[in-house]
Each structure stands twice: as structure tokens, then as C-alpha cells.
């Protein structure tokens, strides 16, 4: 026999979010379980700071709760969530004035100091190179690559998050991958 929770697990993201909107706040837990990893991955990919990334994931879910009345259920929940995630990320850097001041060095330093994560990454040479290469990309290019990854290449939805057309998103992804390729090749040569 299925329990009510098991039943809820088969619900679509939108159906769950509409329940949250109706005041069943516990249902947010299911959405949290579904998306905590991709969201963490997105933030971690952006700042390489696990603690900060966790805080930002928490902020995203806090905003989802706070602005739940704005969710109409017409669009995709995941798109709406990443839209919020992007705003949370921007707000964080605006508040801390880190956005432009952030250098590749500080970013790499953070990576070096974070032993638990770097050890895991060092085991995989390719992954380490990719992480380094991503870190050397400008924030907007890093963001589009991460959005493409966590939105599973749904360019139309990414367009909704960024406020541009599907074609424009594809060009952005192309340019970001082009630059990533160049950085990646440079790193390969250094190895």
C-alpha cells in the first residue's frame, strides 16, 4: 500500500509547487530533495565555495517560500527556480561587492583550500582540468554553461531565465564553449 508521501513523490514539480502555494508547506521538502543537488552544483560551479553554495541553495528555497504566491503553474517550476537561483547569486555578489573584484587566483585558492572537494576532483584528471578551465571563464560564460548543464540543454527555458530568445541562448552557449575549449587546451599544454 502506498503512503501519501509516496503518492506525492510521483507528482510533477508544478503540482507540488501549487500545493506549497496552497499552504501545504511541507511539500516543499520533496522539491528540495529533487533539486538540492543541481542547485548546489550550479552555485558550486559558480563560486567553488561549498559553504557559500549551501547558503545560497537555502536562500533559493527561502525565496520560493516567500514568493510562493507568485507561482502560477503556467511555466516550468525548474525554470522558475533557476531564475530565482540566478537572482540569489547576483544579489549575493552585489551585496558583497565581490562580482568584479573576484579574480581567478582567489577562486583557485579557494579550490585549493577546500580539501574534501579537491581530493575528490584530483582523482579525476579530466574533471580537475574542466573545473579549472570553468573557473577561468568570465562569470557570464560560466553561468551559461552551468545553466545548460543543470537545465539539461533546454535552451528555450534558459532563454526564459535570461530573458532572451532560444537562438540567442544557443549562440551564448557556443561562445562559452568556444572559450572553454581554448582555456582547456591551454591547461592541457601546461600539464
Amino acid at each position: 500500500m502506498k503512503t501519501p508521501v509516496q503518492d506525492l513523490e510521483t507528482f510533477s514539480d508544478n503540482a507540488l509547487m501549487l500545493k506549497v502555494k496552497d499552504g501545504h508547506l511541507d511539500t516543499l521538502g520533496l522539491l528540495f530533495e529533487r533539486y538540492k543537488k543541481p542547485l548546489f552544483g550550479f552555485f558550486y560551479g559558480m563560486n567553488k565555495d561549498p559553504e557559500l553554495s549551501e547558503d545560497l541553495v537555502q536562500n533559493v528555497f527561502f525565496r520560493i517560500l516567500k514568493y510562493r504566491y507568485l507561482f502560477r503553474g503556467e511555466g516550468d517550476f525548474k525554470t522558475w527556480m533557476f531564475h530565482i537561483a540566478r537572482n540569489v547569486n547576483h544579489d549575493h555578489y552585489r551585496k558583497n561587492k565581490l562580482g568584479k573584484a573576484e579574480s581567478v587566483e582567489s577562486w583557485e585558492n579557494r579550490l585549493g583550500h577546500d580539501d574534501a572537494y579537491s581530493v575528490q576532483l584530483q582523482q579525476d584528471e579530466e574533471a580537475k582540468m574542466l573545473t579549472l578551465a570553468l573557473g577561468r571563464l568570465p562569470a557570464d560564460k560560466r553561468e551559461i554553461i552551468l545553466l545548460s548543464k543543470y537545465q539539461e540543454k533546454k535552451y528555450k527555458e534558459i532563454g526564459e531565465i535570461l530573458g532572451c530568445s532560444e537562438g540567442a541562448v544557443k549562440v551564448k552557449v557556443f561562445r562559452a564553449l568556444q572559450e572553454l575549449k581554448v582555456v582547456y587546451q591551454q591547461l592541457e599544454k601546461q600539464m
Binding site: G29, Y44, P50, V57, Q58, E126, A127, L130, I145, K149
Partner: peptide, 19 residues
């Protein structure tokens, strides 16, 4: 490679803080 690349999982603190 980007798609395949696995990001580390968040710690249990995230769960605790969220709930």
C-alpha cells in the same frame, strides 16, 4: 564532458538548515 562532470554533493548541514 561538462554534462557528465559530477559536482560534489552538499553536506548534511544543508538538509538540517533547510528543514
Amino acid at each position: 564532458l561538462v554534462m557528465k562532470f559530477e559536482t560534489p554533493a552538499p553536506s548534511a548541514d544543508l538538509d538540517d538548515n533547510f528543514y
